[in-house]
Design a protein around this nucleic acid. Structure first.
Lengths: 238, 238
DNA sequence: ACCTGAACACCGTTCAAGT
DNA sequence: ACCTGAACACCGTTCAAGT
């Protein structure tokens, strides 16, 4: 680096993504990312807590890219237009897939972080809103998020398994009321789903997603569809 | 290590799996695996080509464990009994999931290897056989493998994307005829599916799986099921 | 044949030091 | 405040050497 303003967190994440695109995740190294910016590895530590934080940032970048991809699909539309919930959800799933294909390392690093990135709740919120306005119950919408999450990332990705641990562990549980209110403003459907689904479960704090049940529901959804196709093929042959 | 026979590849893989179970994949280190066996890191290289081969071996171990789990489900039964294709496929999917949950690092390392492990074709073969005997077309059975693979591992896992590169790159293409015949003996349904599905596609050698199409088919299978559930809920309310 | 120690080129990260 | 160089404890892997 010679002229130019000083290093930036966004620059660092962009450089890391470029390294991953070019040479794979295993090439994303503090020294290598620094080199790409003409800077010593240690300089990165002034803008990023460490390698783990850098990878978290990479995940957030992917989420942002999916959001941009969605805007690109229908620049002026908001999901509360005349689109069916199905078109909204389908379009978003395909957009997510496009971004993943452009960055084949993305599913791996998303899976490697533990917990859902907090930045992803905006995407859920929009899909959720479209489904609920389209006549789906919160239970069904919830189910759909699990099913689509499994399709994109594999069932390993435990959706909703506590929002990434870090929002609430600063102070005690006192602050969570204010945070809850704040989230309700930004993520109304998500909060409503939480409220609707939580009280039906024994332990409301954690594990309110029974992932075994969700897995079997998705599995049966697929098996139902396959069996239906088989029957259609059979009657068509007859 | 003191008395006892000399080091074994199986022992090394078992130790590596134990390290991963206890401390995560990132702890699977030549030095650490060696230490668990009371042996220097360099000793491992006499039984394993390197770290990459060790991880490949770990994947094969997982596949073997899934097979064992399936045998545990119904010790004496072979899939050509009176079970429906659906029960066979469902049971196998749940068995695979159980093993993955027991080794949370498994999906990550499977995804990190590029290509499907050759050892997995036995599992496909049994599921495929049950489906075809149960009245499914090869196309539908093929589709089902993609859908279930996505559920278990995420769409990233490109099923059937050339059997792991290593079976055929020893010699030229001459040997592949003999190998093909050998595989037809062991994997009749798999080979039949390949034959049935291949000629319908432009490029028969590679990419005969159009993964974009497969993704959309699975996506629509899920969306169909969700919409059907929504309608059922709606009429039930009325 | 199998195992070892020293060595090399890399990691992430700390810390005292520079500007 | 931001960047740096040296240093530390780790990696995977090579190689010459032991038995």
């Amino acid at each position: 680096m010679a002229a130019g303003k000083s290093l930036t967190r966004a620059q660092i994440l962009a450089a890391a993504a470029a390294v991953a695109d070019a040479d794979g995740v295993e090439a994303v190294t503090m020294r290598r990312v620094g080199a790409r910016l003409g800077v010593e590895a240690m300089s990165l530590y002034h803008h990023v807590r460490g390698k783990a934080a850098l990878l978290d940032g990479l995940v957030d970048r992917i989420v942002a890219e999916i959001e941009a991809e969605i805007r690109g699909d229908s620049p002026h539309a908001t999901p509360d237009g005349d689109e069916s919930w199905r078109d909204v959800v389908r379009g978003r799933s395909l957009a997510a897939r496009r971004v993943m294909l452009a960055h084949p390392w993305a599913p791996g690093v998303i899976g490697s972080r533990g917990g859902v990135p907090g930045s992803i709740f905006g995407l859920y919120e929009e899909a959720l809103g479209a489904m609920v306005r389209g006549g789906c119950s919160y239970r069904l919408a919830h189910r759909a998020m699990h099913a689509l999450g499994s399709l994109l990332l594999g069932f390993t990705q435990e959706l909703f398994s506590a929002p990434a641990a870090g929002t609430t562990d600063d102070r005690g549980d006192e602050a969570s009321e204010a945070e809850f209110a704040a989230m309700a403003g930004v993520l109304p459907y998500t909060m409503a789903m939480l409220a609707a689904e939580t009280h039906a479960v024994d332990d409301p704090t954690l594990g309110w997603c029974d992932s075994q049940t969700e897995f079997e529901v998705t599995l049966d959804l697929l098996l139902d569809g396959i069996e239906r196709t088989r029957l259609a093929e059979a009657t068509q042959r007859a």
